[in-house]
Protein backbone atom coordinates (compact mmCIF):
# COMPACT_ATOMS: atom_id res chain seq x y z
CA UNK A 1 0.00 0.00 0.00
CA UNK A 2 1.28 3.44 -0.83
CA UNK A 3 1.21 5.97 2.02
CA UNK A 4 2.08 9.62 2.34
CA UNK A 5 4.46 10.79 5.07
CA UNK A 6 5.32 14.29 6.29
CA UNK A 7 8.67 15.46 7.59
CA UNK A 8 7.49 17.97 10.17
CA UNK A 9 11.01 19.36 10.56
CA UNK A 10 10.72 20.64 7.01
CA UNK A 11 7.01 21.46 6.76
CA UNK A 12 6.16 25.13 7.40
CA UNK A 13 2.43 24.81 6.77
CA UNK A 14 2.29 26.66 3.46
CA UNK A 15 -0.61 24.39 2.55
CA UNK A 16 -0.11 23.90 -1.18
CA UNK A 17 -0.74 20.20 -0.55
CA UNK A 18 -4.15 21.06 0.89
CA UNK A 19 -5.17 22.81 -2.32
CA UNK A 20 -4.01 19.92 -4.51
CA UNK A 21 -5.19 17.02 -2.33
CA UNK A 22 -7.77 18.36 0.14
CA UNK A 23 -8.88 14.87 1.20
CA UNK A 24 -5.39 14.20 2.51
CA UNK A 25 -4.13 17.46 3.97
CA UNK A 26 -5.43 20.41 5.93
CA UNK A 27 -3.63 23.27 7.67
CA UNK A 28 -5.09 24.15 11.06
CA UNK A 29 -5.53 27.53 12.75
CA UNK A 30 -2.05 27.29 14.23
CA UNK A 31 -0.56 26.89 10.78
CA UNK A 32 0.27 23.23 11.32
CA UNK A 33 -0.34 20.55 8.74
CA UNK A 34 -2.83 17.82 9.62
CA UNK A 35 -2.73 14.58 7.63
CA UNK A 36 -6.36 13.52 7.17
CA UNK A 37 -5.51 10.14 5.68
CA UNK A 38 -2.27 8.37 4.86
CA UNK A 39 -3.24 5.46 2.62
CA UNK A 40 -3.30 6.30 -1.07
CA UNK A 41 -5.62 4.41 -3.43
CA UNK A 42 -4.71 4.14 -7.11
CA UNK A 43 -7.44 6.67 -7.87
CA UNK A 44 -5.88 9.22 -5.53
CA UNK A 45 -2.27 8.64 -6.49
CA UNK A 46 -1.99 11.39 -9.08
CA UNK A 47 -3.29 14.16 -6.83
CA UNK A 48 -1.05 13.09 -3.96
CA UNK A 49 1.92 12.99 -6.34
CA UNK A 50 1.07 16.55 -7.37
CA UNK A 51 0.96 17.57 -3.71
CA UNK A 52 4.36 15.97 -3.12
CA UNK A 53 5.81 17.76 -6.15
CA UNK A 54 4.15 21.02 -5.14
CA UNK A 55 5.68 21.18 -1.68
CA UNK A 56 8.26 23.99 -1.55
CA UNK A 57 9.99 22.50 1.46
CA UNK A 58 10.10 18.92 0.09
CA UNK A 59 8.43 17.73 3.27
CA UNK A 60 6.15 15.14 1.67
CA UNK A 61 7.04 11.64 0.52
CA UNK A 62 5.14 8.66 -0.82
CA UNK A 63 6.37 5.38 0.65
CA UNK A 64 5.38 1.72 0.36
CA UNK A 65 4.15 0.33 3.62
Amino acid sequence: MKCVTVDFDKCTGLGICESLAPDFFEVNDDGELIVLKEDISDADLQEVEEAVGGCPTEALKIVER
Partner: peptide, 15 residues
Protein backbone atom coordinates in the same frame (compact mmCIF):
# COMPACT_ATOMS: atom_id res chain seq x y z
CA UNK B 1 -2.25 37.38 6.61
CA UNK B 2 -1.58 34.64 9.15
CA UNK B 3 -4.50 32.76 7.61
CA UNK B 4 -2.80 29.48 6.73
CA UNK B 5 -5.93 27.55 7.64
CA UNK B 6 -8.02 29.62 5.22
CA UNK B 7 -6.04 30.37 2.09
CA UNK B 8 -5.99 27.00 0.34
CA UNK B 9 -9.70 26.49 0.74
CA UNK B 10 -10.13 29.52 -1.51
CA UNK B 11 -7.54 28.23 -3.96
CA UNK B 12 -9.69 25.13 -4.38
CA UNK B 13 -12.79 27.29 -4.91
CA UNK B 14 -11.06 29.43 -7.53
CA UNK B 15 -9.80 26.29 -9.31
Amino acid sequence: VNGQAEIMKYRVQIM
